[in-house]
């Protein structure tokens, strides 16, 4: 079972307020009945009022919870979608912010990423490649092409001088990468993100979900270690923050892993052994798996189930109040 929009569950925080309103209404209602009918039939009326209030309130609370559940995008089970595609398009989204120059990966985070990309280009024959560079902004450096000479010269170009915007914005990186795939292509599509995951702005879960919906695999590679290292400036000197402390950059694999999880890709750590074969293997497996089957599986979202029951609860809520139950009971 997966939840696509877990943030919706925050709406449940209002549930106590709803219950409180219902309870206050009930207590005020009790007073009113006494005032209206005196103490003559008090117990019968009170009991009836309690029962009606209880079931009316309960059904409304159930309605509230079920509707929130239907909004949360809960899914279980799998269904298949026909997908006749062959060949592979890969867009590399490469973080070129200053923190990528930290040398906690060998020889540096950025150089390590470059080596990994070369390994992928060499191993995946017949694939087309494109390159997006990003910091706080993102730009398409190389459109999807088979031209190996152009790919090689683009990879040699990668450096923090490419983009002047500071920061790291994985959302823009993914959005730009997703826009690099032509709509009328019949190839499988994958994005490979290289970053330390230390993002400063943007919410990358949105484009990751979009990728999942469109059947685009997003693979993430964390370069750098959680221990991290000091950030150097372009001229070789150390970077200092406003208080005069040296800037230290730590990789955040959790963030990178989450992107891959949402988009149905694989997360890799650039420093693990065998990563140079694991990344190309993961990509060709992605292509091969879909090729052989001719369809892909997607989770079935079950909002209808929750929404249906929510409407039943709402109907009960209305009927509890509107029917004169005493006629039957």
């Amino acid at each position: 079972m997966t939840v696509t929009h877990p943030e919706v569950f925050h709406l449940l925080a209002f549930l106590p307020v709803v219950v409180l309103v219902l309870v206050l209404n009930y207590r005020a209602g009790c007073k009113d009945t006494t005032r209206l009918i005196g103490s003559l039939h008090e117990t019968t009326v009170r009991n009836l009022f309690l029962i009606k209030s209880f079931f009316g309130g309960l059904s409304f609370v159930a309605f509230y919870v079920l509707l929130v559940a239907s909004l949360a995008g809960i899914s279980w089970g799998l269904t298949t979608v026909r997908e006749d595609r062959s060949g592979l398009d890969v867009v590399f989204a490469v973080d070129v912010s200053l923190s990528m120059l930290v040398e906690d990966a060998q020889p540096s985070r950025l150089a390590r990423s470059g080596d990994l990309m070369r390994a992928v280009v060499q191993d995946l024959d017949g694939a087309r490649f494109g390159v997006v560079a990003f910091t706080g902004s993102a730009t398409r450096l190389l459109p999807l092409t088979e031209d190996n000479a152009a790919i090689e010269s683009t990879l040699n170009l990668m450096g923090p001088e490419l983009l002047s915007t500071p920061g790291t914005d994985l959302e823009r990186a993914l959005t730009t990468a997703l826009a690099s795939f032509p709509a009328d292509s019949d190839r499988h599509r994958a994005v490979v993100v290289f970053s330390d995951g230390e993002a400063h702005s943007g919410d990358e879960t949105g484009p990751a979900r979009e990728a999942a919906e469109r059947g685009i695999g997003v693979f993430t590679v964390t370069v750098g270690t959680p221990e991290g290292g000091p950030v150097s400036l372009r001229d070789g000197g150390r970077a200092f923050d406003r208080d005069g402390n040296p800037v230290h950059s730590r990789a955040e694999p959790a963030r990178m892993r989450r992107i891959a999880e949402i988009a149905g890709g694989v997360h890799l750590d650039a420093s693990e052994a065998g990563v140079f074969s694991r990344l190309p293997d993961a990509l060709s497996e992605f292509e091969g798996r879909r090729d052989s089957e001719g369809f892909r599986t997607v989770p079935v979202e079950r909002y209808g189930f929750f929404l249906g029951w929510a409407l039943v609860m709402l109907a009960i809520h209305v009927l509890v109040r509107s029917l004169r139950w005493r006629r039957w009971f």
Binding site: H5, V18, V21, L22, N25, Y26, A28, G29, D32, F49, K52, S53, G56, F60, F63, L67, S70, L71, G73, E301, Y303, G304, L307, L314, R321
Partner: peptide, 29 residues
């Protein structure tokens, strides 16, 4: 799918009704 947008709108309208009747108009049941 556009269902979520519809569900959200419907939810807001029903909650508006609840707040209006139960809090502002002080309906008891």
């Amino acid at each position: 799918s556009l269902s979520r947008h519809f569900i959200f709108l419907g939810f807001m309208l029903i909650i508006f009704d609840f707040v209006t009747r139960r809090v502002l108009l002080r309906e008891r049941l």
